[in-house]
Design a protein around this nucleic acid. Sequence first.
DNA 1: TTTATAACATGATATTTGTCAGTTTATGCT
DNA 2: AGCATAAACTGACAAATATCATGTTATAAA
Lengths: 228, 228
Amino acid sequence: MSKCEQCIVRQLNSLNSLSKEELIKISSCKTSRKIKKGEVIFDEGEHLNGVYCISDGVCKVSKMSSNGREQIIHLVNKGDILGERSLISDEISNLKATAINDMEICFIPRDEIIKDLKQNSDFSMNVLKDMALSLKNADNLIVDMAQKTVKQRLAEMLLNLNEKFGSNIDNVLNIHLSREDIANIIGTATESAIRLLSEFKKDEIISLKGKNISLLDTQKLKKIAQGF
Amino acid sequence: MSKCEQCIVRQLNSLNSLSKEELIKISSCKTSRKIKKGEVIFDEGEHLNGVYCISDGVCKVSKMSSNGREQIIHLVNKGDILGERSLISDEISNLKATAINDMEICFIPRDEIIKDLKQNSDFSMNVLKDMALSLKNADNLIVDMAQKTVKQRLAEMLLNLNEKFGSNIDNVLNIHLSREDIANIIGTATESAIRLLSEFKKDEIISLKGKNISLLDTQKLKKIAQGF
DNA sequence: TTTATAACATGATATTTGTCAGTTTATGCT
DNA sequence: AGCATAAACTGACAAATATCATGTTATAAA
């Protein structure tokens, strides 16, 4: 099994402030796991007895509304940590995590992380900063959901996907989402999301080939996102 | 000037895990301030060089959307801490805080808190838990904003106000908000908020006398909030 | 390849919500 | 008290969005 202290993924997240000894300790008790596309990593109401460090792949983190519709809160990428919120408050999870494509993830048991949080103040400050950033992003999302139209949110989401996952030489986004997932990110009906994508395509702001989306005019997308 | 180690308000928030010595130190460098209703405590883009501990009164924490409308993210009550997010990430504030009624607040400088965060792991764990809770609430709000109708959100907000601020013997909510603030909490136009309040009143779910709102049928409100 | 199933797409229509315009009521100030 | 201003309210209409129905295309399994 590969070792945490040599893992490149680790450099990307708050685990990078751990000492070599702490990493070796974590390495010895972590478990690695492969997840198939569509598989549920954990569901709402489950007790997470640790955190996941994403070695490869992408998953969606979502919550069911009382109306019976799924809302995707955010996407978690390679190098990100998953489940820290529930770890810290030691509650059952309020969110569900589902693989968007095939993944490889490492599970680190709760006690190990908690011990390091108490002993290593650099680490706990780093986790605090992570949480502070998540909170800022969440606040921004609240404002967008409450105040922006679906069209604005779609434009903004496309820009965010480009930012987070990048695109290849032909401007095709490196992430492939179903239309339903897109709708569940921006909080609208699948049909509405499809309609607006078609409209963007007609206006030559994006191009569509199945799940391949490429951004042709990011300037225009930015303007739409801001309400023009 | 009153002393932190004797302050009752402190018991309510994460400062309660500080030692007597740490509290005395904080007490010596804190400053107390009175804020008038409507006054801005800090604005978006300002650098907060510390946190505020609310001794008395209520303020709204909001953000301007690019559409030019204010979205209220949450209300901060007596006993709560204000500004910890910006403190931890050491960034300019992304939010604005405005007094809803006359307030009394204590300002604690950044360096003092940061020092304690690094030295006192109980305290930093407590702050982590606070942030984790805020994050959970933010996630729930995202789902509500994205998936629920304005009517559902209004019903839910009324229940939340009752939960957080309580009501007097006649079921009148202990908090008085303008119709505009109510609209900015649930993310709708002021006219829509007024219309729905009138509808609730007509249906005898609430009663209205100016800014005095009383909840007559919380069961029905709960059902509406959940989509029936 | 054929076939079954799910995903994608589009039109028609209903519902929700925002906007504008105007009226009434409350509030603060001299 | 009287006046000026802001807040609360109501109606009419327009715009945004959801829902339902139905057709088409992609995908996976036999």
